[in-house]
Design a binder for these strands. Structure first.
Length: 659
DNA sequence: GGACTAT
DNA sequence: ATAGTCCAACGCGGT
DNA sequence: ACCGCG
């Protein structure tokens, strides 16, 4: 990792967050233009006096597969919310949608008040209103839910352009100057109204990092461009997902609706042959599903529409149709078997002849997902109601992460947190012993130190984790040792648990501090989000030292850190005096103790997961609950390698010297 | 989620 | 039949 | 010895 890319990542900020997920204001130089009278302002080149127009047609971005190259372009995060034009006139605020509708009343009072407090007489600000999850990216589905439920306490406005100010039109001013003026006006202490910063790094780098952060994509804009209404091409949108047309070669009728399709089998032409790319089973409304059925049921044929031989699973329930219709599909990746990953139907393309549909993207292919023979009894049982994550959704998540996760959960004694009725249900219990009626893919094992005792639990493959999901296991907590070597741990997990009022940046600093101390002992250090409150720093060990020694070392680490900096760190779990300090929890490292597994879901609102990170990815934006069951697949598709690549290869034995 | 137990 | 119950556990530090 | 804490 070069310093340059490291810094590019560090700079990759949306808005810094404190550890409890509350946004903290970005540290910017105090705005100079806080309250100048309009005529004192230095107007940038291109500003023209003029009355404020009623509505300025917004500039829209063209979708391109890649961000443009070259330093004429700057790149902003693509927000996943509603585009709004905010008009301030003498303290009165109106918020207009893309088409000019007045939606001021829909978003509560906080954003409006923030605009009313701006040091301006009048202004037109372009931006996007979003709902941010506790600690993270904007979330369109949360926005829509908040709107429909009348909830108005989570809206945040990202301002990215300034079109008019105090009797001056700015649409002919260079973008970079408009943004600079905008930034100078915005408060630096109001987390409901934020400045949308841009990046000067190469567009592909910015997009890559956006995708690794599970964001939607980036918007690229010409640095010196005027504000141009409409989709003229000086704003370019590139996304972490891909979009292209495919030919419909068959359909599966819906099981829940009459005369409607349930999914489509699609393909593209290559060398005159129709290549099958798998099924698209989401993305259509009931109306579209019926329309497609009506059109497709007239095109049915008996023989395979594809030139590939389909497997029996691919053929199941499939009705072939003459390959004539073309549909647009959004998807995140290609799988290694040349199927689409996470595909959603986005509409029919009546204008394109089927024969012209070819494959448009070259992409590193994602490896195939593991499949399980374990049946889920109620696949649509909802485990996380707010996120709509079901039992099947959780199983699919583990299929996505399994190739990375397996080494940390397989062949280790497990403690499980089970919530048969989901996270809001009445039942929640830990379990570390075998139970009656247990799925056979969960193994009963005997603790060699307690041969008479109750049997412990272990899984050895993907079927095992699906069996855990079926058993309503929402958190997986393995030992830090494998069952090949019960008495010799192969990792140390240090849990950095911030008390109230600890800044997230300080938790990150604590992780780096721990890393340095571990490296000073000749050990490697890896970091993951906990999915809860803090961070976990994990060290691979060559199994050599026993539990007592390893735990003693962990305690020594925690003790020495708190001794060297008692104002910041605490090595004891006492609740009192936790405020403002970080508890370094070393006691996950005794025999029989556990820590939440890498990639394990957490049984809390938000469906966060414990996410392994490269150190360079550990930035202020990535709070402890940033990555979730929902947004992790986008990240994985964008990752060039396992973020903990080389974990076990980096193992060193713990040398006897410290206790 | 599922077995076992009390009513 | 149906409702209720169980499903971990232990060392640490502070009083 | 007991309590709260992970």
């Amino acid at each position: 990792m070069t310093l340059e890319t490291y810094q590019a990542k560090r700079n990759f900020k949306l808005a810094p967050k404190s550890k409890d997920g509350k946004a903290v204001s970005a540290k910017r130089p105090a705005a100079k233009a806080r309250s100048p009278a309009p005529r004192e302002r230095d107007w940038p080149k291109g500003a023209r006096k003029g009355a404020m127009p009623d509505f300025i047609e917004p500039a829209l971005a063209k979708l391109k597969p890649k961000p443009p190259a070259g330093d004429r372009w700057i790149h902003e995060i693509k927000f996943d919310g509603y585009r709004l034009q905010v008009r301030v006139e003498n303290g009165k605020v109106r918020m207009l949608t893309r088409s000019g509708l007045d939606w001021t009343e829909k978003f509560g009072s906080e954003v409006v008040e923030a605009f009313a407090a701006l040091p301006v007489q009048s202004a037109v600000v372009d931006g996007e209103i979003v709902v941010e999850r506790d600690t993270g990216a904007s979330d369109f589905s949360a926005l829509q839910r908040d709107l429909s439920e009348g909830r108005d306490d989570r809206f945040v406005f990202y301002a990215f352009d300034l079109l008019h100010l105090d009797g001056h039109s700015l649409v002919n001013v260079a973008l970079i100057d408009r943004k600079q003026l905008l930034e100078s006006l915005l408060p630096d202490d109001n987390d409901k109204l934020r400045y949308s910063a841009h990046f000067n790094e190469s567009g592909s780098l910015v997009l890559d990092h956006a995708c690794r952060l599970s964001l939607e994509g980036v918007i690229s804009k010409l640095r010196d461009s005027k504000y141009t209404s409409g989709r003229k091409g000086d704003w370019i949108k590139s996304k972490c997902s891909h979009r292209q047309e495919f030919v419909i070669g068959g359909y599966v009728p819906s099981t829940s609706m009459k005369n409607a399709i349930g999914s489509l089998a699609m393909g593209y032409y290559q060398g005159g042959e129709l290549k099958h790319v798998g099924r698209v089973g989401t993305g259509y409304t009931a109306a579209t599903a019926q329309l497609l059925y009506e059109k497709l049921s007239r095109l049915t044929q008996n023989e395979n529409s594809f030139d590939d031989k389909l497997t029996s699973e691919e053929r199941r329930g499939l009705i072939y149709v003459k390959p004539q219709l073309v549909g647009e599909v959004e998807f995140r990746a290609w799988s290694a078997d040349a199927n689409l990953r996470h595909a959603a139907f986005r509409g029919l393309r009546e204008d394109k002849p089927a024969k012209d549909v070819t494959r448009e993207t070259e992409k590193i292919m994602a490896p195939p997902l593991p499949k399980s023979a374990v049946a889920l009894t109620h696949p649509d049982r909802i485990y996380w109601p707010d996120e709509g994550v079901t039992k099947e959704g959780l199983a699919n998540y583990y299929a996505e992460v399994w190739r990375f996760m397996a080494p940390y959960v397989v062949n280790r004694p497990l403690a499980l947190l089970r919530l048969p009725d989901g996270i809001n249900g009445r039942q929640r219990f830990f379990q570390k012993h075998a139970w009656k009626g247990m799925n056979p893919h969960i193994e009963e094992i005997t603790d060699p130190k307690d041969k008479q005792g109750e049997k412990l639990l272990r899984i050895s493959d993907f079927d095992g984790i699906v069996a855990l999901v079926q058993s309503a296991v929402l958190e997986i907590h393995p030992w830090g040792a494998t069952t090949d070597n019960w008495e010799k741990p192969d990792m140390i997990t240090m849990d950095l648990d911030p008390g109230d009022e600890v800044e997230w940046e300080d938790v990150i600093a604590a992780a780096y501090e721990l890393k340095e101390r571990l490296e000073a002992e000749g050990l490697a250090a890896f970091v993951k989000t906990s999915g809860g409150k803090g961070l976990h720093v994990v060290t691979p060990l060559t199994p050599k030292a026993g539990w007592v020694e390893v735990k003693g070392f962990a305690k020594w680490l925690a003790d020495s850190m708190s001794a060297d900096d008692p104002d910041r760190y605490l090595a004891t779990a006492t609740k009192a005096k936790r405020t403002g300090r970080i508890f370094i929890d070393y006691l996950r490292n005794g025999r029989g103790n556990t820590a939440v597994a890498p990639y394990s879901a957490r049984a809390r609102p938000g469906a966060a997961v414990s996410m392994p990170l490269e150190w360079s990815e550990l930035t202020a934006d990535v709070g402890p609950t940033y990555f979730t069951v929902d947004n992790t697949p986008t990240r994985l598709d964008a990752l060039p390698r396992d973020p903990w690549d080389g974990f076990f290869a980096a193992a060193k034995p713990l040398e006897k010297k410290k206790r």
